[in-house]
Computed example of a mutant assay.
Amino acid sequence: MEATFLGIRVELIISVLAFVGAFATVAAMAVPFLARDARAARLRTITKAREELSRQQVAELEQKRARWRPQRSATVLQNIVDKLNLEKLIAPKGLKQKLVQAGYRQPFAPKVYVGLRVLLMGVFLFGGFLYTTVLVQEEMLFLMKILIMFGAGAVGFYLPQILLTNAITKRRNEMTLSFPDALDLLVISSEAGLSIEAAFHRVTSEIEESSPALSEEFGLTTAELSFLGDRRRAYTNFADRTGLASAKALAVTLLQSEKYGTSISNALKVLSQENRDERMSRAERKAAALPAQLTVPMIVFFLPVLFVVILGPAGLRISDM
């Protein structure tokens, strides 16, 4: 007579339990290998995304290099500077960094800048000579002629430096205005799980319309993070190219987060809040300075009209008497 348990044969129960045990053993042995395969697949996906990002950055850099190719006039200036060895004689200290901060990062930019200073000095000097010898009909002292000529030459020599300083200031103001928004986008991207390279690339595309200069700097930093082995150098280059105190603070924050293993998103949140507060304080300072700035225009343009309106009828009556 066959043995049964709850109406089911014992041999069937033993067979089912043996099958379940064997299946569980095989599954327990296979799960780690499947997990490794999934991890390898994720790593392959990340590697492909990194390679695609690198290709995009290379293509963008190639397009920018095509725009930076020197024109014929720039080539002529370079040849003049090289033959006369003027770059070592009159190039100011830190010229390359200033040109980069102004947005002129072409390799031939320093030579063109020096050649332009010499060319403008000669043009203004010749213009001063024509003014003192041809255009002015009345007699002029020889010393006055020399002063006018050399003064015109000095104006031509220092004019590119003034324009360069103005370009740096204008570009820096544009980046300062948009930098808090860029930090907010970095915070959102880091909290979404993006890597710092992907976050920088995302910020590059998002702020391209509002601030082309800052978008360009973020794009170059993304390329350097992809190709350079030293992240410290990439962050330092970003701070040097922009010349912003906020960019230096961002570079220090990212370096400290990677060095000590702290949360990048939390550090970026604090930095973003500080930048927003600083932008608000700048706006409040400008608003508070408006009454003092409007005093002189009101005195010059408003009070004379007011005096004419008030005293005009009285003056007319007195003149009619």
Rank of each mutant, 00 (worst) to 15 (best):
F142H: 01
I90G: 02
T165R: 14
S226T: 07
M280W: 12
D320M: 10
G243D: 02
I264T: 05
V309N: 02
L163S: 12
G103Q: 00
L164G: 01
V270D: 12
L125T: 13
E224D: 15
L220H: 02
I310K: 04
S257M: 01
V308Y: 14
A239K: 06
F227Y: 12
E274F: 03
A66F: 04
E217R: 15
V20G: 09
L316T: 00
V134N: 08
G115S: 08
V81F: 03
E191H: 03
L254M: 14
K98H: 04
K88W: 04
Q256D: 15
A38R: 14
L183K: 02
I46T: 02
L43R: 11
N173I: 10
P291C: 05
A223S: 13
Q56A: 11
I90E: 03
D277W: 03
A74M: 07
Q106K: 08
M121I: 10
S226A: 15
N166V: 13
L53Q: 09
F129S: 15
G153Y: 00
A182I: 10
Q293D: 02
Q57A: 12
S189W: 07
M144Y: 09
R232G: 13
A27H: 01
E206M: 08
A102I: 05
L177Y: 12
A213P: 08
S257D: 09
F142T: 08
E52W: 01
A223N: 10
P32V: 07
R172L: 05
R241V: 04
E224I: 01
E191T: 10
V58P: 06
L294F: 14
R232Q: 11
K111S: 13
S272C: 06
V252E: 13
Q63K: 15
T47N: 08
V203R: 02
F218P: 02
P32T: 00
V114T: 07
L6F: 10
V20R: 08
N166G: 05
L141A: 14
L316M: 07
P291E: 07
L303C: 01
